[in-house]
Write a protein that binds this DNA or RNA. Structure first.
Lengths: 189, 189
DNA sequence: GTCTATACGGTGATAGAC
DNA sequence: GTCTATCACCGTATAGAC
């Protein structure tokens, strides 16, 4: 129940979201977290790769729960997904386009960098996709269709976040929200 | 018409696609391009940021033309977009999931790193989006709707590439291709 | 558990000879 | 145009005192 340990993970998660893996330095984490410098390798013998993996896993769980609770608030899947995406848009805007897509940069970096991080990212996306698919199945979509639609939802959100942060405008996220809403309004198959 | 200059840009483009900006070192570019080490700052006084910007602009044009020619081959927009995405899937697979989304990583890194790179990425996405939107307008969609749909197409492709590379499977790209095809089959509004 | 100091490699960039 | 040498800096990681 070390508070220091948690602080490191929490700070790492934030920096990974805004900067990515390579750009996030140990010194910066120590500085911003206020954690004692000497304790980093005490808590995480595996170094940068280890606490980054833990940071990803933590974020994975948090977002998964956010997806579930958000989708549970509205019965119609099209409106539920729309509302969820607009929440993300708000998050991106209020962060001044510094946040959003907490593991996207790391996921791309990990492909050529770290098998361990890559695996953590893979599991994270699976987790999120399952959360969306479950809602769609409950709404009457077949398992197969729900899986495809969930992939589209995750993919388009991730991509729209890239576009929104790059353009410093949440318009891409709003467009995606509107179009996905239309697609999900069709009769479930 | 310097061949050396072009080699540097070409190599930079490839490395930026697979590794991103921060991970791509000057030494690596010199080594893989076969360019004389001393000529890097001769051709690009602005250093890393400068030739990276040129690499992005070059890729932007190439992909734009690939979008246009690919979409021109098939009249129906739903089938045309599907075919284009499946071509990307092939590209991602044959690269062993090392390539795809040539500027995605750089775009995310640029938000907190380089105003110049950020601008280049912004223009690139605009260029690609316009290419899709034009095809949709020709197919009977309104300007406004075409713009939204183009944003969804770009976003979902970008995101699906992230998922596909992370999962070492082109399934996400295939799912997105199938679902976008369905969405575009609806009567143009 | 935490501190300080340090090792060691790599980075982008520059200088000056040729 | 190109080469070589070198710069100052930053990164991760480790050692050893306390």
């Amino acid at each position: 129940m070390s508070s220091t340990r948690d602080e490191i993970i929490e700070t790492a998660a934030e920096l990974l979201e805004t900067q990515g893996y390579r750009a996030t330095g140990l010194n910066q984490i120590v500085e911003e977290s206020g954690a004692p410098k000497g304790s980093l390798y005490y808590y995480f013998p595996g170094g940068k790769e280890e606490f980054s993996t833990e940071a990803i896993n933590k974020v994975a769980q948090e977002i998964k729960e956010r997806i579930e609770t958000s989708l549970a608030e509205i019965e119609d899947p099209d409106e539920a997904v729309e509302a969820f995406i607009l929440r993300i848009a708000h998050h991106v805007r209020t962060s001044n386009f510094l946040k959003g897509g907490p593991i996207t940069t790391v996921a791309l970096e990990a492909v050529t960098t770290s098998e361990r991080l890559n695996e953590a990212c893979r599991e994270t996306y699976d987790l999120w996709q399952s959360a969306f698919a479950e809602k769609l199945v409950q709404s009457g979509f077949s398992q197969a269709r729900a899986k495809r639609l969930a992939a589209l939802i995750i993919a388009s959100i991730e991509g729209a976040i890239v576009l929104s942060r790059t353009n410093r405008s949440v318009a891409p996220l709003e467009y995606v929200a509107a179009e996905l809403k239309l697609l999900l309004q069709t009769t479930p198959e």
